[in-house]
Every structure is written in structure tokens, then in C-alpha cells.
């Protein structure tokens, strides 16, 4: 158990490190001279070549690639993701002001999505084959196929502007998070409910349940002891990864509602080709995702003894090459 946990943690760290190389390499694709952009943002209209060279050194834009990467990594681990090319200010400073709004949005969205998915998924599986199930399945398909920005536009255009059913204020606080969070949650909730329904039906069709029933166990015992734990694994996996994935959906939901979070900030930075911001956002989202999948792995190992064996080595093909 401990060994396999250590193995998984090591694997996650390795993934994170390799990803950081790929993501950092995006900085090399920068158009033009970032040093000039930064100087212009700081109000230096006509910089001298010496000043440009000094700024390049300060931004870590000169010298061989490999030491530059290590330098960046060293500072990134300490929470310093460099300087925004657009504003000339530290990227982390801007993120610190935008992160709380995004955290509120994604946490609320996750809560809404989990509750909706549990209600729809359980109700759908409990009534499998009836018209209630049919309606729920249709609704969940609609939830999956309707993109968040469309829901957001509908809410803003129809409900708020034309029917006057309330106000949307996007100030990033808890009291106004409802609409944006619901918008972000709907797609995830529909998908999770579909997964939950299928895994409940699959776990419920196991033949040992028939044996168990023949031996006189109660329906409640079969549900709580056998069906739910077995159906939990796929559901937990998609919920955990999906919750981290909500951070990937945040740019769209935040842009529709002008929610002042990191997603909207990053989209604006993309327009301005402010690559350090893009890199920081990507690293944060990826790190969240990797940590989430690590946690799910560990939870699944904890609830499913079958996963507790040593991680199996991949079987090697017997011959390395097919010779003609």
C-alpha cells in the first residue's frame, strides 16, 4: 500500500516536471522582442540598446536555453512565475488577485455539479427503463451537448436582460457566484450523471447479486454493501478529474460573465501575447489536474483492495521486431 502510494506520487512528480519543460518551451515561441514590450509597458518609449540588453537579462530571455529553464523552474517552485510582458509586473501578483474569484467559481460549480449528478444519476438508475429514466437521459444528453457559453448567453440575454428575472453582478464574491457557477456546472453534471447511471446499472447486474438475493439479503444491504461501492470507482474518477477540468472550463465561463478570475485574465493575456501569464495559468491548471488524479488514485486504492498489488510492469512483446 505504502509502496504503491510512493510509486504513484513519484510518477505524478515526474509528469509534472516533464510537463513543465513542455509548457516552458512555449515561451520560446514568443513573437518579437518581449524586452521591448515590457519596457513599453513600463513607460520607456525609446529604450537604448543597453537598457534592452539589461531587461532581457532581467527577464531571463538571454543565454542558453537549458540554464534558462532551470532558473525558471527554481523560481517557479518558490512561486515566482516571472514578469508579465504586458504590465511589467510579477505574474503571481496578478494571479493572487484573480485566483480567489476562480476558486469560488470552481468550488461552487463543483458542489452544484456533484449534487445534480447524484440526484439525476441515482434517479435515472433507480427507474431504469421507465419513462422517468427516458426523460432524465434526454435531459442529461442536452446538458452535455450544450456548451457553457451558450447557457451563459441564454441566461444573460433572455433571463436577465429580456425577462428581468434577476441581476448578474460579476464582482467575484460568494454572493454573486450563482449564475456563473451553475453555467460552468451543467455540462459536468450531465456527464457525471450519465457515468453514474451506467456504472450503477453495471454494478447492479452482477450475477452475485442474484445469489445474494437468493440467500435472503435485503435490497438495502445489496445496494449499500455491493452496488454503491462498486459503482463508486468510475464515478469518483470522472468527478475528480472533471473537477480539476472545471479549471479548464473556467476561461469560457468567466469570459461570458466577465467574472474577474484567472481564466478571463489569461484569455486577455493571450490576445496581448503575454506568454508568461499563459504559462503560469497552464502550469497551475495542469498541477491541479495532476494532484487531483493522484488523490483519486490513492482514494481508489483505499476503497478497492484489488488495486493494492504492486503496479504491474507492462508486458513486453516477445520479439522486439518483426523481421520479414
Amino acid at each position: 500500500m505504502l509502496r504503491s502510494a510512493a510509486f504513484r506520487i513519484g510518477q505524478a512528480l515526474l509528469t509534472l516536471w516533464v510537463t513543465s519543460i513542455c509548457v516552458w518551451a512555449l515561451l520560446l515561441l514568443a513573437p518579437g522582442d518581449p524586452a521591448r514590450t515590457v519596457l513599453a509597458a513600463r513607460g520607456v518609449a525609446d529604450p537604448t540598446p543597453a537598457l534592452i540588453a539589461a531587461t532581457r537579462r532581467q527577464l531571463g530571455l538571454s543565454g542558453p536555453v537549458v540554464p534558462r529553464y532551470w532558473h525558471w523552474l527554481e523560481r517557479a517552485i518558490q512561486g515566482d512565475f516571472g514578469t508579465s510582458w504586458q504590465t511589467g509586473q510579477p505574474v503571481m501578483q496578478a494571479f493572487a488577485t484573480h485566483l480567489p474569484a476562480t476558486a469560488r467559481l470552481t468550488l461552487t460549480a463543483m458542489l452544484i455539479a456533484v449534487v445534480l449528478a447524484l440526484v439525476l444519476g441515482l434517479a435515472s438508475a433507480a427507474t431504469a427503463g421507465t419513462w422517468t429514466d427516458g426523460i432524465i437521459r434526454t435531459v442529461t444528453v442536452l446538458m452535455v451537448v450544450t456548451p457553457g457559453f451558450l447557457i451563459g448567453l441564454f441566461v444573460l440575454d433572455i433571463l436577465v436582460v429580456h425577462l428581468n428575472l434577476g441581476r448578474v453582478v460579476s464582482d467575484g464574491t460568494w454572493s454573486t457566484v450563482g449564475w456563473p457557477a451553475a453555467t460552468l456546472a451543467i455540462g459536468a453534471a450531465g456527464y457525471w450523471a450519465r457515468v453514474l447511471r451506467v456504472s450503477l446499472l453495471e454494478a447492479g447486474s452482477a450475477s452475485y447479486l442474484l445469489v445474494s438475493q437468493a440467500r435472503g439479503t435485503s435490497a438495502r444491504r445489496r445496494l449499500f454493501v455491493h452496488v454503491l461501492p462498486n459503482a463508486a470507482a468510475p464515478f469518483l474518477t470522472v468527478v475528480g478529474l472533471g473537477a480539476a477540468g472545471l479549471l479548464g472550463g473556467a476561461p469560457i465561463a468567466e469570459t461570458v460573465y466577465s467574472w474577474p478570475g484567472v481564466g478571463q485574465y489569461t484569455v486577455q493575456a493571450i490576445d496581448a501575447r503575454d506568454l508568461p501569464v499563459v504559462v503560469t495559468y497552464t502550469m497551475l491548471a495542469v498541477a491541479t489536474y495532476i494532484v487531483a488524479s493522484l488523490l483519486i488514485d490513492l482514494v481508489l486504492v483505499a476503497i478497492d483492495p484489488r488495486l493494492r498489488r504492486e503496479p504491474a510492469r507492462r508486458p513486453r512483446p516477445r520479439s522486439a521486431r518483426v523481421t520479414a
Binding site: 509528469t15 510537463t19 509548457v23 512555449l26 515561451l27 515561441l29 514568443a30 513573437p31 478529474l241 480539476a244 477540468g245 479549471l247 479548464g248 472550463g249 476561461p251 489569461t266 493575456a269 493571450i270 501575447r273 506568454l275 499563459v278 504559462v279 495559468y281 497552464t282 491548471a285 495542469v286 489536474y289 495532476i290 488524479s293
Partner: peptide
């Protein structure tokens, strides 16, 4: 093992 929407956003962000 990585979120695809975030990666796509990063690639478009870098290329423009």
C-alpha cells in the same frame, strides 16, 4: 494525463 482543453488553450496562446 493532462486536461486537453487547458493544453489546447496553451498552444493557441503561445502561437497566437
Amino acid at each position: 494525463g493532462l486536461p486537453s482543453l487547458v493544453l489546447a488553450l496553451a498552444v493557441v496562446g503561445a502561437l497566437g
